[in-house]
């Protein structure tokens, strides 16, 4: 059974069947835009009761915070996996971080200026998004990614060396693990205080205050630290793969 023809044939049969049952099912789905969402309505009421203005934040970090803990550790495991899978083998003798295809001289002056200007702005925006997760769209996850990508503007502005100075990987490694650990520790702390695991035991504050909604901002910051470090770690490993030349290539 060789050749792409087999795969095409299997796909055609499978897609036909799946498409058929999918359409049959979709015709019975409640219409797009229908108003009946029982769980959604309860979640909104619970968010307001917990003084969390961003209902999505309340669901993510409070009501269904357990999912987010899992998600957090998926990212944690993925960063570990990137370290593990893209590690330097002794046999590979790669001159890591020393030879790069692109240096600062390859980048236009205008682009570099843009990079320098945008870097602090992006970091600021990222921080803001993390901290305000309970009251406005965004939160630890989105802010963490903005922070991580923002850091890589340094690469645009300068070169790999500037970037490496901005992101000491061993430190980020620990930050990442600490962020992940913090999430579980918040859960255990609630347990120790006599409430349930991950219960939102802190005072709630006013609906739109920064420090409202109990543990939600705390978890946001933990997630922000974890996500930011994890994304930087993953990007760093990929950059290293893409930008380092190894000696075998030149032989």
């Amino acid at each position: 059974m060789t050749g792409p023809r087999t795969a095409r044939l299997l796909f055609a049969v499978g897609a036909g069947g799946i498409g058929l049952v999918f359409v049959l099912a979709v015709l019975r789905l409640p219409g797009f835009g229908q108003p009946h969402h029982p769980y959604g309505a309860r979640a909104v009421a619970a968010a307001v009761a917990q003084h969390t203005a961003n209902a999505v934040g309340s669901v993510t970090f409070d009501q269904r915070g357990f999912d987010t803990m899992g998600e957090e550790f998926i990212l944690f495991a993925a960063a570990l996996a990137a370290l593990l899978l893209l590690r330097q083998l002794r046999s590979e003798e790669e001159a890591a971080g020393q030879r790069h295809d692109y240096g600062p001289e390859d980048v236009f002056a205008g682009v570099r200026l843009m990079g320098f200007v945008m870097l602090p702005v992006t970091l600021l925006v990222g921080g803001y998004v993390v901290v305000h997760g309970a009251i406005s769209p965004g939160g630890g996850f989105q802010g963490g990614v903005v922070l991580a990508t923002g850091l890589h503007l340094a690469y645009l502005a300068g070169d790999f060396r500037t970037l490496e100075r901005l992101r000491p990987l061993p430190v980020l490694d620990v930050t990442e693990a600490m962020g992940a650990a913090t999430y579980t520790i918040v859960g255990f702390a609630a347990l120790a205080s006599g409430a349930g695991f991950l219960a939102n035991v802190l005072p709630h504050g006013r609906l739109t205050d920064l420090m409202s909604s109990g543990t939600v901002p705390l978890l946001n910051v933990a997630v922000g630290a974890e996500v930011g470090s994890a994304v930087v770690l993953i990007l760093a490993k990929f950059l290293e793969q893409a930008l380092t030349k190894d000696r075998r290539a030149e032989a």
Partner: peptide, 10 residues
Amino acid sequence: DPIVQALTLT
């Protein structure tokens, strides 16, 4: 519905 949004985020 905020639930599906949280799910999508994950």
